[in-house]
């Protein structure tokens, strides 16, 4: 009897293998969908400081490393090198250089922690105003140049406005921004993220007439540019990682 019973228990487990795989796959599928929807809704991120560690630190390090602020290894430990890099990044983005990764620094890195940024930019506009243009420009700047020095952010805004004035390009800000293939940030959807604080200031400066590019209508990152054509343009100057050209 004991043997018989044992066999049956064994059979139950044996059959269970496939069922467990089935249930496991269902869980992965459902879990994946959940993660996907949570990811698009911007999760909350904790503040990071000297001594913090973990995947969020690794994220900050790799971002800062990509943008040339951080030279150390991406080890997920917030040490002096990371702190120095954060400070340099904050200085260039018009933030208080305290070496702390709080909500505003997260936002400048491209990871808004809450909806406060959205509220700050959703200024109600009635009738005629410049608010829509500021908002649209700020989004392009955020998508294209949020890791750039402040003047590089103004420069991206200025390029959009220079295109509006140029016969070869569409004649409205929206026309220029949404021209198919014109801006990477528009093609890959980065334009939909809430604008970082400095990008709004940069957009207003650009609309007020500041043009650090002196009429440039193109810019590109020499490290990642794939088109040979872009190198044939007349170079005006370099700001941060971008070359601005006519």
């Amino acid at each position: 009897m004991s043997k018989d019973n044992h066999q049956k228990v064994f059979r139950l487990v044996n059959l269970g293998k496939y069922q467990i795989i089935g249930i496991f796959m269902t869980l992965v599928l459902v879990g994946g969908m959940l993660v996907y929807s949570v990811d698009t809704a911007n999760g909350q991120r904790a503040s990071l400081y000297w001594g913090s560690s973990g995947s969020d630190v690794r994220l900050v390090q790799s971002k800062l490393s990509n943008w040339g602020y951080y030279k150390g290894s991406i080890d997920g430990v917030f040490g002096s090198a990371t702190s120095e890099a954060v400070r340099a990044f904050q200085r260039n983005n018009g933030l208080v250089a305290d070496g702390l990764v709080g909500p505003s620094t997260w936002a400048a890195l491209g990871y808004p922690t809450s909806n406060t940024e959205v509220k700050a930019v959703a200024v109600s506009s009635r009738g005629v105003s410049q608010d829509d243009n500021v908002e649209m420009l700020a989004r392009v700047i955020t998508g294209e140049a949020r890791g750039e020095p402040y003047i590089g952010q103004v420069a991206v805004g200025a390029v959009v406005l220079n295109r509006v004035q140029d016969a070869r390009f569409p004649k409205s800000i929206a026309g220029v921004i949404f021209q198919p293939g014109a801006f990477t940030a528009v093609s890959d959807g980065q334009i939909n993220m809430p604008p970082v604080e400095s990008s709004r200031r940069a957009a207003i400066d650009a609309l007020n007439g500041w043009d650090p590019t002196y009429g440039a209508v193109y810019y590109f990152n020499p490290a990642t540019a794939t088109s040979a054509w872009i190198w044939t343009r007349t170079k005006v100057l370099t700001i941060g990682k971008h070359i601005f050209a006519l």
Binding site: A167, R168, F169, P170, K171, Q179, P180, G181
Partner: peptide, 25 residues
């Protein structure tokens, strides 16, 4: 002006249409 607007909505690389765009403008 309308033609220039339509031209710039097409999914082709900008450098292939810039002269035409300028002409229409």
């Amino acid at each position: 002006y309308a033609a220039q607007e339509k031209l710039n909505q097409l999914p082709v690389a900008h450098q292939t249409i810039e002269k035409t765009s300028k002409f229409l403008n």
